[in-house]
């Protein structure tokens, strides 16, 4: 199974590469748009942190690290969820699951592999890593093996949390295809719009909500608190991966329910918009 997944990823990486390099103008334009989007999406908070010398209780360098972490955590789902796989409600709401159902492989495998686009968003990965390295150096952060392990786990957890949360909302489209067609996008927006903000200033109720019901805090704020020592204790380091695992389980269960329903009602509204490129 692992070999098949790798084989499919290689196939989709090839298609992604071919697509990006299909002509010079598109190639340049694509990366330019990507770079501008990456910079513009963090510039607001970055400038705010510069102006106010941090966002209490975070220092400026910590905010910079947080922004970098958020960018990389966003890159992974984007890389795995192209062709609207991350925005799964569109695929379901537009009746595009039919294309997957005619493939001789489990639906989860198709969804795990067919959105793989490693060349997508490379220019948000590079600045994200750059910001983290730059801030880490200024803070004198020691990247010991245990810390790197915790970092990798939290990064994977943040990415998985975003994917699972978008999917959880997105599966609503199994039940209400038209009304919920864009719901995954709203869920992604909610998670990612707040990913660059230190959320400590919120009241305890909202803070709890933002790591549970609407886990935008898991995208960067909560894992970075643990990684940068703002939150002491080993539990904090494990909280994001654990929450992500719980979200993934919930998403899997909902997906099974949704697929049962899809087999019963199918989709009466088909559009190829955004299906493949």
């Amino acid at each position: 199974m692992a070999a098949r997944i790798l084989r499919l990823w290689a196939l989709y990486a090839y298609l992604d590469g071919m697509w990006i390099a299909r002509d010079f103008r598109s190639f340049i334009f694509y990366y330019l748009a990507d770079a501008v989007t990456a910079v513009a999406s963090v510039a607001g908070v970055l400038l705010l942190a510069q102006r106010f010398d941090g966002i209490p209780p975070w220092t400026r360098d910590q905010v910079v690290f947080l922004l970098g972490f958020g960018m990389v955590a966003r890159f992974v789902p984007d890389m795995l969820g192209n062709y609207n796989v991350l925005h799964i409600s569109r695929r379901i709401g537009r009746g595009q699951l039919d294309h997957i159902l005619v493939q001789p492989q489990p639906v989860w495998m198709a969804l795990l592999t067919e959105g793989f686009a490693p060349f997508w968003g490379l220019l948000s990965l590079a600045p994200g890593v750059g910001l983290m390295v730059w801030a880490g150096q200024r803070m004198g952060l020691e990247a010991t093996p245990p810390w790197l392990l915790a970092f990798a786990l939290n990064l994977a957890g943040a990415s998985a949390a975003l994917t699972a949360y978008a999917a959880l909302w997105g599966f609503a489209a199994f039940f209400q295809p038209r009304a919920a067609e864009e719901i995954s996008g709203s869920a992604v927006d909610l998670m990612t719009d707040l990913k660059g903000f230190p959320l400590d200033a919120l009241g305890p109720g909202l803070r709890t909500a933002l790591v549970t019901v609407i886990p935008a805090g898991l995208m960067a704020w909560y894992p970075c608190r643990a990684l940068l020592g703002l939150d002491h204790g080993i539990a904090a380091l494990w909280a994001t991966p654990a929450a992500a695992a719980a979200l993934c389980c919930a998403a899997c269960l909902t997906f099974r329910m949704g697929m049962k329903r899809y087999a019963q009602v199918g989709s009466s509204r088909y559009t190829s918009f955004g299906h493949r490129r």
Binding site: W169, Q176, I183, D189, L190, P198, G203, L206, I214
Partner: peptide, 28 residues
């Protein structure tokens, strides 16, 4: 359609609450 589209608005409300709290912290 059914009320599912209202969720988008709920998300907007939460985003607003978060932004307001951040401004209060910054301006403290």
């Amino acid at each position: 359609e059914n009320p599912l589209f209202l969720l988008t608005y709920l998300l907007r409300l939460l985003r607003l609450a978060a932004l307001l709290a951040i401004w209060r912290a910054v301006f403290a």
